[in-house]
Amino acid sequence: MQIKTKLIPLVGAVATVFAVAGSAYAQEEVVKIGHVAPITGANAHIGKDNENGARMAIDELNAKGTMIGGKKVKFEMLAEDDASDPKQATAVAQKLVDAKVNGVIGHMNSGTTIPASKIYFDAGIPQISPSATNPKYTLQGFNTAFRVVANDGQLGGTLGKYAAKELKAKTVAVIDDRTAYGQGVAEEFTKGAQKAGAKIVASQYTNDKATDFNAILTSIKAKKPDLVFFGGMDAVGGPMLRQMDQLGFKAKFMGGDGLCTTELAKLAGSGLKDNEVVCAEAGGVTAEGKKALEDFKAAYQKKFGQEVVIYAPYTYDALMTMVDAMQKAGSADPKKYLPELAKIHHKGVTGMIAFDAKGDIKDGTLTLYTYRDGKRTLLEVTK
């Protein structure tokens, strides 16, 4: 009898522990954040870089037991692949809406971000792109659309001015890949270059899956431009540089952020000559923010065993900015935290993040690079 008497309070205590644990578990809210980028196809290395940046943020938030509105929350990332294809982008956007995500980080490309943004807007779900630069994205009047990098108006215009003023290019040929991003940055570059006094001697286009540029390059070479500008991604720009080298086509080469990756050296091979390629990242930090960004890059290298390709820090910041807005609102409900996101001031690893009335980042910076010994080398950070 005595043994039974002792067991009764023990069983009761265990039951109490489980009840308390169950209650705590029930209190933990799950916050679902979608991430979309190309994980297959020619741009997969950039898309995976973006996804890794989002993954770092999610893991950090969960490790420190983030609270929203006095409740501990668990973040889940719903990662989707749009393969840089507008149709696939809208399909996965609808999938995320149906999954009732609390917010979306993405998409990577302008050509996928723009059509997907209408779906998120209709559902009232905030979207922050870490890398889409076409101005049209934030000109649609969608109060759910934000970006944490400068747009093509700033990026292309700055590159055009730099080509004429700093690189002393008097004659310029322009090639774009017919995507929303490629055309947009090429158009803005053309405006900036012409305004700064350069003459456009050729305008050609290819596509984002092309591998043979001999006909285009032979035609342009005959016009003897001082500089060739390419609006497109590194997966196309790299082979283009190889073929320029094979044709003995000597001209400076310039591109936007899609070209400006750590992978370009592998893709261009012998076509990547020292100081002959100039590109811009649609973001960057001034001297006072350098340590935070370098610390992030070191942590990224340790976690994933590879260098940052380009936009992982901006994806990380985009997700942290969204969560900051949720905490300020005391809720992960899109309707409740969207007003806080619109007026946010978040100190990220890429600098201070605040948005204008359209959803563009305020005081966005640009980082100009060249390549030396196969390494991307900083030229300057500008606004």
Rank of each mutant, 00 (worst) to 15 (best):
8 I>C: 01
13 A>S: 12
19 A>D: 01
25 Y>V: 15
36 V>D: 00
48 K>I: 09
56 M>T: 01
60 E>N: 03
61 L>V: 04
66 T>E: 12
68 I>A: 05
71 K>C: 00
72 K>D: 05
87 K>H: 04
88 Q>P: 01
89 A>M: 08
92 V>N: 05
98 D>H: 06
103 G>D: 04
104 V>R: 12
108 M>C: 08
124 G>I: 07
125 I>Y: 10
130 P>T: 02
131 S>R: 15
132 A>N: 09
133 T>L: 06
143 N>K: 15
148 V>K: 02
164 A>R: 07
165 K>P: 00
174 V>A: 00
178 R>T: 15
182 G>C: 10
183 Q>F: 06
190 T>G: 09
198 A>S: 13
202 A>F: 10
202 A>S: 12
208 D>K: 10
214 N>F: 09
214 N>V: 10
231 G>E: 02
233 M>E: 03
238 G>A: 01
239 P>G: 06
241 L>Y: 10
242 R>D: 08
245 D>T: 00
253 F>R: 09
256 G>F: 08
261 T>E: 05
266 K>S: 11
268 A>Q: 07
274 D>N: 15
274 D>E: 05
284 G>K: 05
306 Q>T: 15
306 Q>I: 07
308 V>I: 04
316 Y>T: 02
321 T>Q: 01
321 T>V: 13
331 S>E: 08
339 P>H: 12
343 K>T: 14
349 V>Q: 08
354 A>S: 15
357 A>V: 09
357 A>N: 14
363 D>E: 12
367 T>F: 04
373 D>I: 04
382 T>H: 07
